[in-house]
Amino acid sequence: MSQPRIRILLDNDTGIDDALALAYLAACEHVEILAVTATPGNVDADQVAANNRALLALCGAPQVPVLIGARKPLVVPLLTTPETHGPQGVGYATLPDAAPAEPGAGERDAVDHWIEAARANPGELTALLSAPLTNFALALRREPRLPWLLGKVVIMGGAFYHQGNTTPTAEWNTHVDPHAAAEVYAAYTAAAEAGLEADKLPIVCSLDTTERFEMRPELLTDLAAAAGCTEPETVSEDDPEGTRSTASNPLVRYLSDALRFYFEFHRDYDQGYIAHVHDFFAAGIAAGTLEYKSRGANVAVETESPLLIGTTVADFRALWGKPANAHVVTWNDPGAGFAELVEKLGALARRLPPAP
């Protein structure tokens, strides 16, 4: 059975798991990526945009506009994470930068582009936010009707009953720009009070469920087989650090080199030779391909406490007397998700010419 066409506006901070999510969306034939906008986070906005252009070109989608909006968080200084994602954001992976998708694309403002697209297609577009919420907060400032104009919103961020991955209580995306996240959730509280339909509230993929998507190196072996690589792809903890892939397929090589860095990072922080691929799960929800369960809650973000800045709090019981402003994901199926990932990326990889 064919899936309904889904048109996505993606905001990311590529980022190894952002790259995996972007490649997955490019592999979904029912998904049309209308634009990819760059928010500073894992690396600065210019590097995010360069990573997105190069990966889209590799995936056969160089026509997708890649735009830059904000270049720093709303209030706090920008914090990047080279120790987690590498100095260029995609681990050991390298690709030549691609030219802007269309003349003048690099000069257009990402926030204005989102607003124009939403106004032109009311109720039809899905917004996938796998980065700090800076650009989305700015878009809501300029167009307060955005919650009504967008058809679906998916956010990767936050931690509720799970320890943070940046501070003891804060998740990375929210910690990078806590004030933007606070504005976004406050805007959706106001929208809910004004009668916004429940199905238009953001679907929030927090660490509580994204860290269940625990990728292991064997998945790259499965992906190479699905892609028809001439030799098996093996990534092992026993390999010398920084070993590069020699896969015959360029997409497999790129993802293998990116994810090896991520495996090494998680091992160095005593989490095992694994990779938490948070953004792929959020992309699967946006694409309508991954199952999940959720609960309504009013979500707020701490912006004042030095100890707790960036901490997300979910009121599931309406103790604050406020309406739900989000659907917080409470369950997912990593096994089915990884099978879906191998199938889709393998099919895309088979369509690409061999690596030089």
Results as ranks from 00 to 15, higher is better:
residue 256 S to D: 09
residue 225 A to I: 00
residue 15 G to V: 00
residue 333 D to Y: 14
residue 200 K to I: 05
residue 249 N to A: 02
residue 8 I to F: 10
residue 198 A to P: 02
residue 321 G to E: 14
residue 53 R to C: 11
residue 174 T to G: 09
residue 270 D to G: 00
residue 215 M to R: 01
residue 241 E to P: 05
residue 208 D to P: 03
residue 211 E to W: 12
residue 251 L to W: 05
residue 207 L to P: 06
residue 75 V to S: 14
residue 145 R to L: 08
residue 7 R to A: 14
residue 39 T to Y: 05
residue 84 T to M: 07
residue 214 E to G: 00
residue 181 A to W: 05
residue 251 L to T: 02
residue 37 T to D: 09
residue 323 P to D: 08
residue 206 S to V: 02
residue 91 G to Q: 05
residue 12 N to K: 00
residue 268 D to G: 06
residue 293 K to E: 15
residue 182 A to L: 06
residue 199 D to V: 03
residue 280 F to G: 01
residue 3 Q to I: 10
residue 294 S to H: 15
residue 298 N to M: 06
residue 50 A to W: 01
residue 334 P to M: 03
residue 92 Y to H: 11
residue 73 P to V: 11
residue 154 V to N: 00
residue 267 R to G: 01
residue 23 A to S: 15
residue 227 A to S: 04
residue 29 E to R: 11
residue 101 A to P: 05
residue 165 N to L: 11
residue 349 A to H: 04
residue 349 A to K: 03
residue 156 M to C: 11
residue 319 L to Q: 13
residue 71 R to E: 14
residue 96 P to H: 13
residue 216 R to G: 06
residue 27 A to F: 14
residue 344 K to D: 12
residue 287 A to P: 02
residue 297 A to D: 07
residue 65 P to A: 10
residue 93 A to E: 02
residue 305 S to Q: 00
residue 50 A to Y: 00
residue 346 G to D: 05
residue 65 P to G: 06
residue 139 A to E: 06
residue 119 R to A: 15
residue 287 A to I: 04
residue 132 P to Y: 09
residue 205 C to W: 01
residue 178 P to A: 06
residue 136 F to M: 06
residue 89 G to L: 06
residue 339 A to M: 08
residue 84 T to F: 11
residue 85 H to L: 01
residue 156 M to L: 10
residue 4 P to Y: 13
residue 234 T to K: 10
residue 246 T to E: 13
residue 316 F to M: 07
residue 262 Y to T: 00
residue 110 A to H: 12
residue 242 G to N: 07
residue 14 T to Y: 12
residue 15 G to I: 01
residue 322 K to I: 02
residue 95 L to C: 09
residue 59 C to Q: 11
residue 266 H to E: 12
residue 272 G to F: 01
residue 154 V to E: 03
residue 179 H to I: 08
residue 179 H to C: 11
residue 96 P to T: 07
residue 314 A to R: 00
residue 229 C to I: 08
residue 223 L to E: 02
residue 34 L to T: 12
residue 335 G to S: 13
residue 219 L to W: 04
residue 102 E to Q: 11
residue 265 F to D: 01
residue 180 A to F: 11
residue 113 H to G: 02
residue 42 N to D: 11
residue 164 G to Y: 04
residue 227 A to G: 02
residue 111 V to M: 12
residue 266 H to T: 01
residue 156 M to Y: 11
residue 216 R to N: 04
residue 228 G to H: 10
residue 146 L to H: 05
residue 161 Y to T: 10
residue 134 T to G: 07
residue 103 P to T: 14
residue 204 V to R: 03
residue 279 D to E: 07
residue 220 L to T: 05
residue 44 D to H: 13
residue 56 L to N: 09
residue 195 G to K: 03
residue 140 L to T: 03
residue 216 R to C: 05
residue 246 T to N: 10
residue 274 I to D: 02
residue 80 T to I: 13
residue 181 A to V: 04
residue 136 F to A: 04
residue 59 C to T: 08
residue 232 P to A: 11
residue 239 D to R: 01
residue 246 T to S: 13
residue 162 H to P: 05
residue 356 P to D: 13
residue 324 A to L: 05
residue 109 D to H: 15
residue 308 L to S: 07
residue 174 T to R: 06
residue 34 L to W: 07
